[in-house]
Design a protein around this nucleic acid. Structure first.
Lengths: 197, 197
DNA sequence: AATATAACTGAACGAACATTCATTTATATT
DNA sequence: AATATAAATGAATGTTCGTTCAGTTATATT
């Protein structure tokens, strides 16, 4: 039998990502996507059941890539401030270096697709995070908090800074804005202050 | 001449909001919207130039409503901790009481529509915020920070908690989650700790 | 009561949509 | 070299899309 063309599959993913980020979900048309990826519309339906399945599978794929990047050199048993810094910098740099990929994830998260089942994603991320936070609490490096509060305080500011960086505009869209390592460190310091007893 | 039917206009806005939040931007069809609002498709084009104009005008309308709610009883000259609490509680309660309206705003913010010109929005919000923060810095109640960092630390955790509350699910979508006033106060306390010298 | 005018309408337009299907093509196995 | 099989295709399907337009309806003004 004939083997699958990996390059076609990757081309479909790349073009779909680009269309969604640049034109939104209603900008993703199967026929336009086929043309952009250099395949027949029917070929897409070999890889994906339908348009929805394409979007969900794309999310799983991108989610795992982002998690891999975020967990690089991360040790859940490291001291809290150190571990959080590794995650912050990994995540920030991945987003800045792969704007289409990370904007796609943000777009899904804040759309009706947010229900996509997290079960399909590698559970290492959540496991590592939970262990990391519990370590921190046990060692009295972190205030005792519901996981959701911890997560919101620890990471939401980062996501927000990255989003403004992507847009190239700061508050209210009036001022140009660029996120650099100095500002990341400055913000991380505040976050650590909040979470430390 | 004949007068405009305000109820029709409001019905169009309500149904559009609902369609977008429930089905995403590609779920908003002009013909479905017309039927849901009980008007002719052509009527929509009296109020709005086209589909894009409808979405942008809807954003301006909802943005102003949200700002009004957030600034209720807010005094930019009040002590920092007090002013921030007023804004936090206003914003949180507005979001929880008007889930469609606030989810719509979040969806726009994280979509290609994020470029919508902020100029069309009442400038009171930004003005009040800037004054409030500068007051805080002057009185040494707040650390000196770029506005973007301040904003990210002060409000991004709130937006994130509200989003999880809307979804009814917490971290990783595994656990049910409800945001209550106690948790809001707890998180606000951390945020104030981060921003206070 | 007549008139002018803008709100409002349903039906219609071509374009674009997601998806399918009968064929053709490439290749791993025999 | 022959065969079997899944990959890949282009054209076609019926549907839904955004938008328009010729005609009507309601009302503020005269």
């Amino acid at each position: 039998m004939r083997a699958r063309d990996e390059q076609k599959e990757e081309a479909i993913r790349q073009e779909a990502l680009k269309m969604i980020v640049e034109e939104g979900f209603d900008g993703l048309s199967m026929q336009k996507l086929a043309k952009a990826a250099g395949v027949s519309p029917a070929t897409i339906y070999i890889y994906y059941k339908d348009r929805d399945d394409l979007i969900v599978q794309l999310w799983v794929h991108e989610m795992n890539k982002m998690i891999d990047a975020t967990l690089k050199d991360f040790d859940p048993d490291a001291p809290f401030a150190e571990g959080l810094r590794v995650q912050w910098m990994n995540r920030a740099h991945y987003s800045i270096d792969n704007p289409l990929n990370s904007e796609f994830l943000e777009q899904i998260k804040h759309s009706p697709y947010h229900y996509v089942s997290i079960d399909k994603v590698d559970p290492r991320f959540l496991d590592a995070m939970q262990r990391f936070v519990h370590n921190g609490i046990r060692r009295k490096e972190v205030v005792k908090l519901p996981m959701e509060v911890y997560w919101s305080v620890a990471f939401a500011p980062l996501y927000n800074l990255v989003r403004m960086h992507m847009a190239g505009r700061g508050l209210g869209g009036r001022q140009p804005f660029t996120l650099d390592d100095k500002m990341l460190e400055q913000t991380l310091k505040l976050v650590i202050k909040a979470l430390t007893p």
